[in-house]
């Protein structure tokens, strides 16, 4: 176990040289993006136990601002990233303040409704391209436009961001803030009676989560050079985050990585097997996986493994 972390880091660092070629690099980048957004979701949805089903609003904001900065003022898209983070932060406060007074279901409902509100609104707003969306620079003017022909630079940029998100989560886990989160998740009333500032802690978790989700959105749009309401704010963006985190194991540091490791290749496979019509089947599959997870193993693969591993060990000892 001691070597698992360096081994994981080495594997992620050298992956592009183990499996070479654009096809595998593309999968690698998709894996990293899924892992980043799910890790960001995990902070509020997993650790704090406040299940957001509308995280696409932060992803979408983060995805739109870089291309909007380019579209309006011809600035390099990267310049829009901090603006996206700020808007996401404000959005998190606007949603968290009222709903965190109420039971957890309110938050879930509010997130899905607000995400949908923004999606429809952006789809009618001409300044941000309405239903057509926005495009980034077709050809990079200089390196700071971050338009690379190869997937490789994106892979390492995304990897660096993933490292930051995971390190932050790790620090949160160990801190007093992390204990507060676990206390709230275990029982809000009990936590409050022990002096945990419940609302402030939940709000802080949402703000942190929103900022990272926004960055994930920015990475996506800068790499793709294109964004529209559906790929930024669509419900399937939120679904992806929830399912990746829950499948791997919500409220665990590496759960989202495991989830992305299982889901991204699966998605690539269904899309290749079924062609263009595959996306529909992918979402039927997603729905089925989510239902089965909720019914049988809400702790995800992480908890499942903790049940299974000791039994396997015992068997190998006995043999």
């Amino acid at each position: 176990m001691k070597w698992s972390l360096p081994a994981l880091a080495a594997l992620l660092l050298f992956y592009p040289f183990i499996l070479t070629g654009p096809f595998y690099w593309d999968i690698g980048v998709a894996f990293l993006l899924a892992a980043i957004s799910a890790s960001a979701w995990n902070i509020v949805g997993g650790y704090a136990g406040q299940v957001s089903v509308g995280h696409s609003m932060f992803f979408g904001v983060g995805a739109y601002t870089p291309l909007l900065f380019y579209h309006l003022w011809g600035l390099p898209p990267v310049a829009g990233v901090p603006a996206g983070m700020l808007v996401s932060l404000a959005l998190a406060v606007a949603i968290g303040m009222p709903t965190f007074r109420l039971q957890g279901h309110y938050f879930s409902m509010a997130t899905i409704a607000v995400a949908e509100l923004i999606r429809i609104f952006v789809g009618t707003w001409d300044l941000v391209g309405a239903a057509i969306g926005l495009q980034g620079p077709a050809v990079g003017r200089a390196w700071w436009d971050l338009t690379f022909r190869s997937e490789l630079p994106y892979y390492y940029i995304f990897l660096a961001v993933l490292a930051v998100v995971l390190y932050t989560t790790f620090e949160v886990e160990r801190s007093r803030f992390g204990y507060y989160l676990r206390a709230i998740k275990a029982g809000e009333r009990a936590a409050r009676s022990l002096g945990v500032p419940v609302r402030a802690t939940k709000l802080k978790a949402l703000m942190l989560s929103a900022v990272f989700t926004s960055v994930a959105g920015s990475l996506y749009s800068i790499k793709t050079g294109f964004i529209d309401p559906e790929s930024g704010f669509g419900i399937l963006v939120s679904v992806q985050m929830v399912i990746v985190a829950a499948l791997g194991g919500a409220a665990t540091l590496f759960g989202p990585l495991i989830g992305a490791l299982l889901l991204v290749p699966l998605q690539t496979a269904t899309n290749t097997w079924f062609g263009g019509g595959g996306s529909g089947l992918t979402y039927i599959l997603y729905g089925g996986i989510i239902v089965l997870l909720a019914r049988f193993e809400p702790g995800g693969m992480h908890e499942w493994w903790q049940h299974v591993a000791p039994r396997l060990m015992r068997r190998s000892h006995a043999a």
């Binding site: 136990g49 299940v51 529909g280 989510i290 239902v291 089965l292 997870l293 909720a294």
Partner: peptide, 28 residues
């Protein structure tokens, strides 16, 4: 088949159960 088993479980399971069901029904 579903709700009876999740309704007293963790919040995540409660919300994911019908959310997943919604996706399943919609895309089917």
């Amino acid at each position: 088949s579903l709700i009876r088993h999740v309704m007293r479980g963790p919040m995540l399971a409660q919300i994911l159960s019908t959310f997943g069901l919604a996706l399943l029904l919609r895309y089917t």
